[in-house]
Design a protein around this nucleic acid. Structure first.
Lengths: 162, 162
DNA sequence: TAGAGACTTGGAGCGCACTCCAGGCAAGCG
DNA sequence: CGCTTGCCTGGAGTGCGCTCCAAGTCTCTA
């Protein structure tokens, strides 16, 4: 049996864990490990986002409620870093924040939203594919123009030599 | 001798024509042909931009001065459509408007800006390449997650059948 | 020639994704 | 103890790329 599906069928009623399991993506930078309770500035260093943005993400519902210290300061866990890593990918690929918030809501609502989550991601994937093709097309145009300028330079240098 | 370079060395002092020559990109939609003097609404239909945006492009110096009818209405030529096609590509690939304006300025200034134009386009090309890779990375993550949800669906359906 | 619809302008407004500010609390150090 | 540094909040501000408005002029069709 597929390991992921096995995990799914076992973990009824613990949707965040399912999502976390689905979050096994590797990251380029090693995370500040140990406590599993990172301050906001550690998360800033790790994600490249500003503290303002991290707090704003929380306000608009893009973060699944971050833990607090006894004095009310934020303490992010590895799960939060995973989530931020995924959000970062969606952001880099131009998904509107509203859509990311929608996805976050679906995750919070539990397993009965699997279908809608899948659809949301599939739509975005189609989007990304289209944009990759657009970028590739433009790359060809850019190559053509750059070659033109390079050739022009070479020609004028030849004229100097002669 | 390379045809483009030959054209270049012949057309000293007519930089827009050089640029136009460099603008031999094909477009997906046939342009409204005939007069070579299109109204703004024809250009709207052809480019997909709004009339507002077209006028705004002109105000900020992104268009190389559009011709006018005897009463002052805009009449775009094929050269303008070529330029808008190229600008559209840069826009799709996320070049900031300020950079496009800079490029437009360089074109207006003549052939002695070839080197800077090339550099500008090369920088953008690098940029586009990086973004293509980012998109591809995210595509892998999306595929993984979508598969997860698809598998979950299949598993729950199997449970129903049994 | 009349009326509808397209085009003109400068400047104001909008949506997005942050970004910053003011004013205050809490922890660690000499 | 005082000082510095880090973090907290709600709300205001910013930059980008458009987008729209008001009020007037032009063009086209009947």
């Amino acid at each position: 049996m597929d390991e992921r599906v096995a995990a799914l069928t076992v973990m009824e009623g613990v949707p965040e864990q399912v999502e976390a399991l689905c979050e096994t993506v590797k990251f380029s930078h090693p995370r500040p490990d140990g406590q599993d309770r990172y301050t906001i500035s550690e998360v800033v260093a790790w994600t490249g986002l500003t503290a303002h943005t991290l707090r704003w993400y929380e306000r608009i519902g893009l973060m699944p409620h971050v833990d607090r210290s006894h004095t009310g300061q934020r303490r992010y866990g590895n799960r939060d870093l995973d989530w931020l890593g995924f959000v970062g990918k969606l952001r880099l690929t131009g998904m509107p924040v509203a859509d990311m918030v929608r996805y976050a809501e679906l995750v919070r609502e539990g397993e009965h939203t699997f279908d809608e989550r899948r659809r949301l991601l599939q739509d975005h994937r189609d989007n990304v594919r289209v944009r990759i093709n657009e970028l590739r097309d433009t790359l060809a145009v850019l190559d053509f123009k750059i070659d033109f300028y390079v050739d022009a330079r070479r020609a004028s240098e030849e004229r100097l030599v002669r």
